[in-house]
């Protein structure tokens, strides 16, 4: 199990386009990937789940991955957050 905290840095937060990027990236890995905020935990391979997290600007999330390629998955996903999902 690998975990990492990330902060949403793009102004619009996680709307449909970033969610699609996340799902696309997460689906490349075999591991189980999930996001957690203070209330809930959702599957990172489900687009509607990620959108309904309601992750806005400056809020933080924890990426959790469990499986053979967990480190790579967490790295790839946190890279997306770092790059502000190629926005602004």
């Amino acid at each position: 199990m690998t975990e990492r905290d990330v902060v949403i840095k793009n102004r619009a937060g996680i709307h449909a386009r970033p969610a699609a990027l996340i799902v696309q990236t997460a689906s490349r890995f075999k591991s189980k990937v999930a996001f957690r905020n203070e209330h809930e935990e959702i599957n990172a391979k489900s687009i509607m789940g990620i959108i309904t997290l309601g992750a806005g600007y400056n809020s933080s999330l924890t990426i959790k991955a469990d499986g053979e390629d967990e480190a790579e998955a967490v790295h790839a996903l946190s890279q997306l957050f770092e790059n502000r999902f190629e926005e602004e």
Binding site: A12, G13, I14, H15, A16, R17, I51, G54, A55, G56, Y57, N58, S59
Partner: peptide, 17 residues
């Protein structure tokens, strides 16, 4: 329109917090 609602919602959520 779904995405517009999401954006609006995220905006109000972040204003609230």
């Amino acid at each position: 329109e779904f995405n517009q609602s999401v954006l609006k919602w995220l905006e109000t959520e972040s204003a609230r917090s």
